[in-house]
Design a protein around this nucleic acid. Structure first.
Lengths: 236, 236
DNA sequence: ACGCATCCCATATCACCGCTAACATCGTGC
DNA sequence: GCACGATGTTAGCGGTGATATGGGATGCGT
């Protein structure tokens, strides 16, 4: 059991290294097996498929990604944490372009959960923002928006080999999306106060829960809050 | 000459059809040749390489894209044209997902000009906006921002098979980016008036040119205007 | 009209790829 | 002791991208 896991890890690392060194963002199962010191059938027993191996590589890429996110310490300002997260995402894409495309570019029939888990990470960071009253929309909506924009900018950066990389474009995109999703610090009471109150309560519930309500009651309350928050668009 | 061009077109069409029908966004040169009624070496004589064939398919995808853009009539409001262009881009991605990824996803060693030409198309639309005084930044900066965001949202849409597709997310992203790049209609005089004046003049020059200056003089003037416009960020 | 050179293209490969059937080995529980 | 499942190897199949090579059609000078 642990042996097979160790072998899996060895092969995933070999695959990741060869992917990073490849010129066409592809790998050969034979080369991976040779680098790992095993023969081909073990690959198909451990991963079932070449796609399974790539999925495992993508998931391992998520581990790397999550470690990078965990290394970035969490300040008391969730919004500045969010900004640092955006920049960290872009740095990850710059450092591991092939792995990044494997994780964030749509691959048919892929069972990798990397993108979904990155999405969840972003939702968690956004829930903290919502708890601080800094969010104008539901965390999941904001997460989809931010992640899409971040991926778009990252792929643009990968496609164009910019020598002196300027963070101006990335930061402009960041502020464009953030200002659409966050409450501006200067004018705290912007937007519908009912919506913001509902979103704030929802975030607090999601963060800490409550002992005052049964589980089913809490679930229903969350759905009501969603309906209140989703009733009208903040900026149509 | 015309014969080889016709043959090229036949093979490109066959490749595009097989790409759209493929399950893994890949094609086999043999199958393309068989569908076109030719043998393999002619493919390598016409396109040099499998990558060359895919580049040709991507460029043909641009033709399709440009035709779709040309079909959308140009109103007298360049900003609403820009909005329609965003939606049209997304519709194209939804209709031809594999071709879209071939065109807009970074492929190493690709010589396709599809993405660059789409970028130029967007720049042209933005220059019209700038001529109307509706642009806050240089057209090329705005184009890179808008295209990146549009690609990000499109790939997100391709990755997640949303049954009832809601344009809410796309429109939210659109407005987020546009409001960062366009001057708001309500407060026309926002931002540095010097910058806006410089950008407006630059756009007019780029659109209609001028007979009052020599070509070299115009070139230098454009560079000065760029320096004026690029001196300070409008929203740091 | 004829020999010859030039081009074009199909046949027949080559090296490599993902993948699998069949067999060998080894530890383990009944 | 032995059957059995887990693990790994050998050998090979069908398919893929890419190419060397021969053979026939064409054009041309004589």
């Amino acid at each position: 059991m642990a042996d097979t896991d160790a072998l899996r890890a060895v092969m995933i690392k070999a695959a990741e290294r060869q992917l990073a060194a490849s010129s066409d963002n592809d790998i050969a199962t034979r080369a991976v097996c040779e680098a790992a010191g095993v023969t081909q059938p073990v690959l198909y027993r451990l991963f079932g498929d070449k796609r399974g191996l790539l999925d495992a590589v993508a998931d391992h890429g998520y581990e790397r990604y999550a470690a990078l996110k965990a290394a970035q310490e969490r300040t008391d300002d969730p919004v500045s944490d969010l900004r640092a997260g955006w920049d960290g995402h872009l740095a990850f894409a710059k450092e591991h372009p092939a792995l990044y495309q494997l994780m964030f570019t749509p691959r048919p029939w892929s069972h990798s959960t990397a993108r979904a888990r990155v999405f969840d990470l972003l939702v968690a960071a956004l829930v903290r923002c919502a708890a601080a009253g800094a969010l104008k929309v539901e965390p999941r909506t904001a997460a989809r928006l931010i992640l899409s924009a971040n991926v778009g900018i990252a792929l643009d950066h990968i496609a164009r080999p910019t020598l002196f990389d300027d963070p101006a474009l990335s930061h402009r995109m960041r502020e464009a999306v953030f200002s659409n999703v966050l409450t501006e610090a200067t004018e705290q009471a912007e937007g519908d106060p009912l919506r913001t109150a509902a979103l704030r309560l929802r975030a607090q519930l999601e963060l800490h829960g409550t002992g005052a309500l049964e589980q089913a009651e809490t679930a229903l309350l969350l759905r009501w809050l969603d309906r209140i928050a989703g009733h009208g668009a903040p900026r149509p």
